[in-house]
């Protein structure tokens, strides 16, 4: 009996321990935050940083302020390999580099990839100098870190509708995206969303490419406000489709000081000369009219 007990206990002990080891329970571990001085060269930028350009004058101002009164708030870092990555405070770090400081005050803590992305965005979303287009690129970049779009929106503190407005940029035609790369401020997220919608609604229209290109040119030339872009395209497509003038041909644009000020177009029904209002003074307008009258008179002969 005694022997039996020993044998039973021995095998049971083995079973119990095996079962517990095999269960693979997660153990929680919060590393906490550490305040310390970190060598400036051991730090790299946040890989999820949406901002590629930091205006020099702002950095100079920040550096001057740090030189005078010191760093008010430590930057936020996480460990990465042998060094650190910035979760928040890239400008402050760059200012330290400008000042040739060896170390920067930092809070070092454990931050997940998705949190890194959110930190980088959160730092920038509220600043006015990051355009909606840049934010949309940043959101696209971190999208994969979140299980669902809902989770993504929640983490960024965006309402869903607003997030989808950012996503609208991605569905715009290449020629528009190319212009946005150079000048991201051309289009806000709601204008982009409206544009996306109108392009989708008229995707079967044969005039869409031509009208949207025309509208976009007007917008780039600052002759069309971005809030009116989508409506303009919608109206224009309707106009063109209703008009028998099927073969619109843009013959020529007029420029003054590099700005587009008018065009000449022709169809099988009309020949149109269009110029911005008040471009010509009264005398010039008179001369133009007289010139046309003269030409008409000539052809009558």
């Amino acid at each position: 009996m005694k022997k039996d007990l020993k044998g039973m206990l021995q095998s049971k002990l083995q079973q119990n321990n095996l079962r517990h080891t095999a269960s693979g329970q997660e153990v929680e571990f919060a590393e906490g935050r550490e305040y310390r001085l970190v060598p400036v060269d051991s730090i790299e930028a946040n890989p999820y940083q949406p901002r590629k350009v930091f205006p020099q004058d702002e950095l100079d101002k920040l550096a001057a302020s740090i030189a005078e009164i010191g760093l008010l708030e430590p930057i936020l870092l996480r460990k990465a390999g042998d060094g650190y990555q910035i979760a928040a405070g890239e400008r402050r770090w760059r200012a330290h580099k400008l000042l040739h400081k060896n170390t920067v005050e930092a809070i070092v803590t454990n931050i997940s990839d998705s949190d890194m992305a959110v930190f980088a965005l959160a730092e920038n979303v509220d600043r006015e100098d990051l355009s909606d287009y840049e934010i949309s690129l940043a959101i696209r970049q971190i999208e994969g870190l979140f299980p669902t779009k809902k989770k993504l929106a929640e983490s960024l503190g965006l309402v869903r509708e607003d997030m989808y407005r950012y996503f609208a940029f991605n569905e715009l035609p290449d020629f528009i995206l190319a212009d946005l790369e150079a000048n991201p401020r051309l289009l806000s997220r709601s204008a982009a969303n409206d544009l996306k919608k109108v392009l989708k609604d008229h995707k079967d229209s044969p005039y869409l490419d031509q009208v949207s290109a025309e509208a976009w040119d007007l917008l780039v030339a600052k002759e069309l406000d971005q809030t009116k872009l989508a409506d303009f395209i919608k109206r224009k497509i309707k106009e063109v489709a209703n008009n028998i003038d099927t073969d619109v041909q843009m013959a020529q644009y007029f420029f003054r000081d590099g700005k587009k000020v008018g065009n000449i177009s022709s169809t099988n029904h009309h020949f149109t000369i269009k110029l911005s209002a008040k471009l010509l003074d009264e005398v010039q307008e008179k001369r133009l009219k007289d010139f046309i009258e003269q030409m008409l008179a000539d052809t009558a002969l």
């Binding site: 119990n16 079962r19 517990h20 269960s23 693979g24 329970q25």
Partner: peptide, 11 residues
């Protein structure tokens, strides 16, 4: 639970 439970708590 590990003593009287028939399942492992993680299950």
């Amino acid at each position: 639970s590990l003593h009287i439970g028939k399942k492992h708590p993680s299950e």
